[in-house]
Design a protein around this nucleic acid. Structure first.
Length: 420
RNA sequence: GUGGGUGUAGCUCAGCUGGCAGAGCGCCAGGUUGUGGUCCUGGAUGUCGUGGGUUCAAGUCCCAUCACUCACCCCA
């Protein structure tokens, strides 16, 4: 124990688990890159007003979860609670929307929300996101969803379910919203929930309390209120997903926490994470650009939770490929002359693209071999006075235990050959 | 903001109705003065989260406090 520890709701990523996090980030990023999405990186903080406007004043994120601070100059800034608002801001700021559409971008980074931590919910968390901006084409929705499904599949997750819904648009949603409000007002609800009826009634559908859920069974569903355009759009998305072989479940109760979503919304959930079952989610946000002062820019995107995906992998007992690798070679010197020679050979190996480590600290041979073993190296290079005077080093295969002398000037080529 | 659970060795945890601080794993050393992963032997490491109280005596009981954790509201 030390005097200091990581702040509440945060955690350190340390080996060996940190390798899994890297692998998850990489797998998620890779599917986006393969599909022509370019990397975008925006600041970790933005003008507070961007999130208030973008995420929505009525969302809980804005009302109670933002890390907001005032600069010396008097500006109000906020650590980003999510990625989409920042990306849309960047696209508009740099006029990317004036070029070829859709603009396809992906990102990977840290996000911040001030909440009570629990399993899968942290104050500092990690997401990989992808956004396709400026195209109102059901195939884009489908591409986005398929990419996320592919990322989870590449990682080896099996128990992932895709939930799908539509939230309608500016034409039909208000009608549904009014009907829902009327229904909700007739229920027996606590004060906070009653307040939400006026602010964002859709979110009441998401309540998990049994006494609330019981009353929601006969709630009106959006499907009955969709306008023709939204209905057609949603049917198209559904049928394209089916043609593409992507399994999904219609979930008319699926509402998301951010105010900007329109039409397609979806969530990837995993059973086995505890209460925080969503490992990724997203949807279409056709009105967000205009909300932020830009032109109409119908867009769709997702964010996948890196931390939660790691939890899901653990729950399934899946080992991520490539996350447990050590170095290729470990050097074990005996005596001062060998220390200098082997240290030099380690540099040569590294320059040749072979990962290599070294027994530092003048350990005894036994201790150094132990270190070699723990490093996960495939080969150990051992050398002492005897070998040096013969211009060789001992190359030991740590799996088979076989050991052969190799001339010093042929070590790098010999190892490269064996590793290929 | 609300409710539950847990704080004992580096890690995972045991420790009964109060009576000398424990195990497994890991770590270090030796068995093997030039060879790891198996095996054997030995060793080190604790303000029992913190502060107070009850008691002859507190890891154990009581109070407070802090931390962690799970869940609710809500969300990736």
């Amino acid at each position: 124990m030390s005097t200091y520890q990581a702040p509440k709701g945060t955690f350190d990523l340390i080996p060996p688990k940190s390798a899994t996090f890297l692998a998850v980030r990489e797998a998620m990023s890779a599917v986006a890159r393969r599909a022509g999405y370019g990397y975008v990186e925006t600041p970790a903080f933005e003008d507070t007003a961007l999130f208030k406007r973008g995420v929505g004043e009525s969302s809980d994120i804005v009302t109670k979860e933002m890390y907001t601070f005032t600069t010396r100059g008097g500006d109000s800034l906020t650590l980003r609670p999510e990625g989409t608002a920042s990306v849309v801001r960047a696209v508009l700021q740099h006029n990317l929307d004036k070029g070829a559409l859709p603009v396809k971008l992906y990102y990977s980074g840290s996000y911040f929300r001030y909440e009570r931590p629990q399993k899968g919910r942290y104050r500092h968390f990690s997401q990989v996101g992808a956004e396709a901006l400026g195209s109102e084409d059901p195939l884009v929705d489908v591409e986005i969803i398929m990419l996320a499904a592919e990322a989870f599949r590449d990682l080896g997750l099996r128990q992932v379910r895709l939930l799908l819904n539509t939230l309608g648009d500016s034409e039909c949603r208000p009608v549904y919203r009014a009907a829902l409000q009327q229904f909700l007002r007739g229920l027996d609800l606590d004060e906070d929930t009653r307040a939400r009826i006026d602010i964002n009634p859709l979110r009441v559908l998401d309540d998990k309390r049994p006494e609330v859920r019981a009353q929601l069974t006969d709630a009106p569903v959006i499907a009955d209120y969709l306008c023709d355009a939204c209905k057609a759009y949603h049917e198209e998305v559904r049928s394209l997903l089916s043609i593409g072989g992507v399994a999904f479940e219609d979930d008319p109760r699926l509402v998301r926490g951010l105010d900007y979503y329109t039409r397609t919304t979806f969530e990837f959930v995993h059973d086995g994470l505890g209460a925080q079952s969503a490992i990724g989610g997203g949807g279409r946000y056709d009105g967000l650009s205009q909300e932020l002062g830009g032109p109409p820019l119908p867009s769709v995107g997702w964010a996948l939770g890196v931390d939660r995906t790691v939890l899901a992998l653990e729950a399934e007992g899946v080992a991520v490929p490539g996350s447990g690798r050590g170095v290729d070679v470990f050097a074990v010197p005996l005596g001062e002359a060998a220390r200098h020679l082997l240290f030099g050979l380690v540099q040569k190996l590294r320059r040749a693209g072979v990962s290599a480590d070294f027994a530092f600290g003048g350990k005894g041979l036994k201790g150094a071999m132990k270190a070699a073993d723990r490093s996960g190296a495939r080969y150990a290079v051992v050398a002492g006075e005897r070998d040096l005077s013969a211009d060789v080093v001992q190359l030991k295969d740590l799996e088979s235990g076989e050991q052969v002398p190799v001339p010093i000037d042929r070590l790098v080529s010999t190892i490269k050959e064996k590793l290929s």
